[in-house]
Design a protein around this nucleic acid. Structure first.
Lengths: 142, 142
DNA sequence: TGCGCAAGGTAACTAAATGAGACTCTAAGC
DNA sequence: GCTTAGAGTCTCATTTAGTTACCTTGCGCA
C-alpha cells in the first residue's frame, strides 16, 4: 500500500441511475468548461437564486424585485437580471408606459430550474441547525 | 387594475408539499439571515461544490484534491476546506507521517448534500445546450 | 554537508467582483 | 416650476478572490 491515492474508496453513491456528478476514481481533473461549472457559476452567485425565487411567484417589474430583495443594489440587480436573461432563464418585456416599465418573468426553461433549487433549499432547511451547531463547535475549538 | 404589483400571478408551483422556496405573493422581502442564503452562500462559492464532488469519490489528501481540481490555488483550497469543515460537511484528520499528511473526507452531513447537488447537476447537464443557445441568441441580438 | 523535494500550509500583494450613491430621461401631478 | 416614479447608468470605494513567494521537517542522495 503506497502513499498514493490509489486505494481511495469507491464512490459513495451508485444507485444505477446517473452516478450523480462525481468523478469515478481519483485524479480525474475537473474540466473548467464543464456544464457543472457553467451552471454553478450562474446560480452560485449571490443574487441569482434570490431573483429566481422572487420571479417564481409571478412576473415582477424591476423595482418590485428590488423591494423583494431589499439589500440588492440597482447595479447588481441590473446585472443579475441581464445574466439570467442572457442564459434564457428569464424574459424581459418593456411596456411603453408613461415612465417606461419593464416586466421580468421566468421562461419555461427558467421554470425547470425551480425544482432542483427547491431540493437544495429543502436540504438547507433540514440541515441549517446542524450546520449552525457545527460552526459553533468549530469556533469554540479554536 | 392599478400599476402596483398586486395583480401578480400566483406561485408557479403549489403541489401541496412545501411550496418550494418561494415567497407567497409579492413584496415579501428576503431575510438576509435565512437558511436559504446561508446555504447558497456556502455551496454557491466557486470551489465548494467541486471539492465536495471530489471528496464524494472517497477521502483525499490535500494535494490529491488539488490535483483533482487543477486550477484551484492552495490558498483557495485551504480556505474552502476550512469553511466546509467549519460547517460540518467534511472532516480533517492529520496523520503524523514523515511529512505530515492530512486527510479530508465527507461527514455524514456532508454526504446528505450530494443528492441535492446531484439533482442540480442533472439539470445542468440537461439544460446546458439550451443555455448555450440562449446565450448565442442574446449576444447576436446585441 | 548540504541540495532539493514533498506535504500542507501562511503572508504579502494584486486583480476582479461588488456595493453605495449620484446622475439621466420623460411625462405626469401639485 | 418643483417633485416623483421607473428603470436604469456611471464613478468610485470596499470586499473578495487569486497569485506568488516563502516556511517547516525529514529523507534520499551525491
Amino acid at each position: 500500500m503506497g502513499q498514493g491515492e490509489a486505494e481511495v474508496t469507491p464512490p459513495v453513491f451508485d444507485d444505477g441511475t446517473e452516478l450523480f456528478f462525481m468523478a469515478r476514481g481519483p485524479y480525474r481533473p475537473v474540466d473548467p468548461q464543464c456544464a457543472v461549472r457553467d451552471v454553478l457559476d450562474r446560480i452560485g452567485d449571490k443574487w441569482s437564486t434570490l431573483v429566481m425565487r422572487t420571479l417564481a411567484t409571478g412576473p415582477h417589474r424591476f423595482s418590485a424585485v428590488q423591494r423583494a430583495i431589499p439589500d440588492i443594489s440597482k447595479r447588481m440587480l441590473t446585472q443579475t437580471l441581464r445574466d439570467l436573461e442572457r442564459d434564457g432563464l428569464i424574459s424581459r418585456t418593456v411596456f411603453p408606459t408613461k415612465p417606461p416599465s419593464v416586466e421580468y418573468r421566468l421562461t419555461p426553461l427558467g421554470v425547470t430550474i425551480l425544482e432542483p433549487l427547491a431540493v437544495l433549499v429543502q436540504w438547507a432547511n433540514r440541515s441549517h441547525d446542524a450546520i449552525k451547531r457545527a460552526r459553533l463547535a468549530f469556533d469554540e475549538a479554536g
